[in-house]
């Protein structure tokens, strides 16, 4: 079991547990984190699972691939910390990951 922490736009903190290989998006959806809409279900096709990876973690993630990067550039309010949570898969390296949630996805 891994730990992942979500912090919403009002600063509300939710700590959850995740399985090996589970996406951060699916952890959010399974636990009622409603700011992660994830309408396409994790195919990098809708851009509604946007999150901001915490400063302390951004350097420890593999960079986005081309299709994720293309989508990130077209999200509302993207930053250098923007990721699609459907593309972040939990592993030993991400145990304890902290992500921030946008107020709205679109």
């Amino acid at each position: 079991m891994y730990r992942v922490t979500f912090i919403d736009a009002d600063g509300q903190v939710t700590e959850l547990t995740a399985q090996q290989g589970q996406s951060v998006m699916s952890v959010a959806v399974a636990n009622g984190i409603d700011q992660i809409l994830a309408e396409c279900g994790g195919s990098c096709a809708c851009g509604t699972c946007h999150c901001y990876v915490d400063d302390a973690w951004i350097g420890r993630l593999a960079p986005p691939d081309d299709s994720e990067q293309g989508m990130i550039e077209c999200l509302m309010n993207p930053t250098t910390r923007s990721r699609l949570s459907c593309q972040l898969k939990m592993s030993d390296a991400l145990d304890g990951l902290v992500v921030h949630l946008p107020r709205e996805q679109y």
Binding site: V29, G32, D34, L37, E39, C40, G41, S43, A45, C46, Y106
Partner: peptide, 19 residues
């Protein structure tokens, strides 16, 4: 809310024009 409906489909063919 939440309202996780499937009107736009899902997966790779998720409705391009949804927004």
């Amino acid at each position: 809310n939440p309202n996780r409906h499937l009107a736009f489909g899902g997966g790779a063919h998720f409705c391009l024009g949804n927004h």
